[in-house]
Design a protein around this nucleic acid. Structure first.
Lengths: 254, 254
DNA sequence: CAGTGGTCTAGACCACTAC
DNA sequence: TAGTGGTCTAGACCACTGA
């Protein structure tokens, strides 16, 4: 399909449409190189600015990725990590496996949790609201970055009420077998249920950098609250790379 | 902070950073107008192309929205629709309320389901895999677009095995009280559980148009399977505007 | 070294909006 | 009509890559 300069659809959209079709249709497979900008200029008889505008459309859709000095490539689908509600099952905790550990082993992945901060901080409003405490009250936070197969996947901040965390292994780098949930249960806070809330947006530049994300890839904001008999005992706030995760939930019909 | 042209950080990023700070810091509230492009050109002493590049960064983060002939504005947070697993509770079906109806009423929203297609089609691979049938086998599909408060929110395709749907109210525009799930249960397919899978990406131009989405807003791909005693009876494939939805799940700790 | 994408300049014409 | 953002041209210099 040649470009129609008299069409209502801008030229750069027409070029993007054509390239997108070749990508989604499989003619340009993941990892393959698109024609260079100068080739596209020659092909479509337009200027480099317009060609780049078309390529930016594709990049902002998460379809392509430019590599300076080399070319523009179709983005690979990347490594998928499946997050299921099964990871919270008591039997895994009792087997000494934290949710993260169980889930990584289940998928035969190497995992690593990089501890960024262990500190007492004023509660952000999002956290305070779920703990039912005033904003700014002290809470203890464990900030980590989760790597799976040496790829940064997730920024994960766990918040606790200070009296449950300070002076326990929850405030240590290594929380021991079963993770923080096992430590909470040892303190007598038997976990009864979790709630998870997911929302969706584009990353800030800082998040994009820390999660090594390409342009055009959204993030998932995850807020989890762990309850012990209606008492919130942990608020977990996380940002996950959207192209590397699938969330899966099983829901009873009753 | 004035711009530093000798910095490693490109000028357009520095401009975008400064504007982003004013937006996230609240100095530029949702709905407010950013300085015009020509004002920014004067302020930062650069060209319009570079200013526009900065504005494009913000737009691709979903923070701003241009209106031709008027200006660039901070995007409003939009109407949020909460999707909870509660909407699948049997008691709501028994009260004659489909999941969508219950959820809309719960949030005091006006809703409308625009039926786009009712047809027998070859099963797409995604659907076939979940029905455990060969790809291309005939399935019955109800394609709809869901409007909440007259805003298009969701593209929703429900797939059924033909023998459960054709000749029943499931194949009609109006499926009756309690919706398709009630009709399936009347046929003896008692619903026992659902699985929901969520993944995340940027919309295609067509989806962005049909959901009236701004640039820089991701979509959620939702695949739900309704089971009657391990038999899949519906595969629900949906695309939702990411900035207008929050998903909320309750998970047992056992 | 030639070719690539990343950034930037200095213009132009257009459609649309508000006055 | 003046001002806005949307599109497009025709160049420039740069950092980086692979041969």
């Amino acid at each position: 399909m040649p470009i129609d300069p008299r069409s209502d659809r801008p030229i750069y959209h027409q070029i993007a449409d054509e390239l997108r079709e070749r990508i989604l249709g499989g003619a340009l497979a993941p990892g393959q190189k698109l024609p260079s900008e100068s080739e596209l200029v020659a092909t479509y008889g337009t200027t480099r600015t317009t060609v780049r505008q078309a390529l930016r459309v594709l990049a902002s859709e998460g379809l392509t990725e430019g590599r300076r000095g080399i070319g523009v490539f179709v983005r690979g689908s990347g490594t998928l990590r499946r997050m299921t509600n099964e990871r919270f099952a008591r039997r895994h905790r009792e087997a000494g496996k934290a949710a993260l550990v169980w889930e990584a082993e289940q998928q035969h992945r190497a995992w690593r949790a990089e501890v960024l901060e262990l500190a007492e901080v004023p509660a952000p409003s999002l956290v305070a609201a779920r703990f039912l405490i005033p904003q700014g009250e002290p809470v203890f936070v464990r900030r980590r970055r989760i790597w799976i197969d040496e790829v940064p996947m997730q920024l994960a901040d766990s918040y606790f009420l200070p009296h449950m965390a300070v002076g326990t292994r929850i405030a240590q780098e290594d929380t021991g077998p079963g993770g923080v949930y096992s430590r909470l249960e040892e303190q007598g806070y038997q976990l009864t249920r979790f709630t998870e809330e997911l929302s969706f947006r584009m990353p800030t530049p800082d998040e994009a950098h820390r999660l090594d994300m390409a342009h055009g890839v959204p993030v998932v904001d995850l807020v989890r609250v762990a309850y012990s008999h209606e008492q919130p005992v942990e608020v977990f706030v996380s940002v996950l790379a959207g192209d590397k995760h699938i969330f899966s939930y099983e829901i009873s019909a009753d």
